[in-house]
Design a protein around this nucleic acid. Structure first.
Length: 277
DNA sequence: AGTGCGACCTGATCGC
DNA sequence: TGCGATCAGGTCGCAC
């Protein structure tokens, strides 16, 4: 679930709340989530201070004041929670990072029902190599011109292209569905079949749905919670995602569910006409 | 090379 | 009611 708007919401709040905090201790009850190992991570990071929280695509980057970064991926069910020690329990807590700043003690907890997510300690110098595997970032380096080039170079279904992190950063299943609806494009249309007008509409639709996601602090259709343990609200504003058999908000037709790239895909058969596979 | 698909996990929900 | 099957979706590794 966590896509660009969800990860960005978490990043923003963590950056505001936990920058300048020092790592006092770390615990972990699910070995593979904390990499390379609890022992190694403690050895290199105990006593370091968090400089800032950054983001690339759906990846959260915690910059420490020495030569280290944490890379955190929430995958489907991961949560990062700011808590007071001894306060509420969070189900599925896997890693706890104990933090302190000017006598204030906080915990950053990583909770993940399905254990797909991870916290990985890397050397700062490894970062640019890792980030080079991700495409341009919407609102930053993805321009209409670059977007056009990306679509022209692939015959794959447009929805798969939108969700391919190598080509474009940050778009997942929810926002891909809603952006294609907003642009009135069928999700299985070949990317390189779209004309310039459609490309422009889609480019603008992507920015629009991501902006809505950010405005509503993410979509909590399933397990997503923000850094304070609160739900986002974008699920109240879904256009077609998850609305199988409901009526199209635009024309009233019945929304269809198909599978594209192994993912549930929702569209209006009237507004988003199939053009070419 | 480009593409597609199963595996990784768990819990909620569905169907019989 | 109870139990097994199915579904959810981000990314990696492998197969064609």
């Amino acid at each position: 679930m966590p896509e660009l708007p969800e990860v960005e919401t978490v990043r923003y709040d963590l950056n505001k709340s936990l920058s300048g905090f020092q790592i006092k201790d770390i615990s972990c009850n699910t070995t593979k989530i904390l990499q390379p190992s609890l022992k190694e991570v403690i050895k290199h990071t105990k006593g370091l201070t968090i400089s800032s929280f950054n983001r690339k695509a759906k990846l959260l980057i915690v910059e420490l004041n020495k030569d280290w970064n944490f890379l955190i991926h929430l995958k489907m069910s991961g949560r990062l929670l700011i808590r007071d020690p001894g306060g509420v329990e969070d189900r599925w807590t896997r890693v706890i990072i104990a933090l302190e700043r000017k006598g204030i003690i906080k915990e950053l907890r990583f909770a993940d029902q399905r254990k797909f997510g991870y916290i990985k300690l890397i050397k700062k110098e490894e970062l640019s190599d890792i980030l080079s595997n991700y495409g341009p970032e919407p609102f930053a380096d993805l321009s209409l011109q670059i977007f056009t080039k990306i679509l022209k170079s692939s015959r794959r279904a447009i929805k798969k292209v939108l969700m391919d992190q190598v080509l474009i950063s940050g778009i997942g299943n929810i926002y891909a569905n809603d952006a294609l609806f907003l642009a009135k494009i069928h999700p299985e249309t070949s990317a390189n079949y779209l004309n310039q007008n459609q490309i422009k509409n889609l480019f603008e639709a992507i920015e629009e749905v991501l902006k809505r996601g950010l405005k509503y602090r993410g979509a909590s259709d399933n397990s997503y919670l923000d850094a304070f343990g609160k739900k986002g609200q974008y699920q109240e504003h879904f256009l077609v995602y998850g609305k199988n058999k409901e009526n199209c908000p635009n024309c009233g037709s019945v929304i269809q569910k198909i599978v594209v790239g192994g993912r549930g895909t929702f569209y209006c058969p009237k507004c988003q006409l199939q053009e070419r596979k």
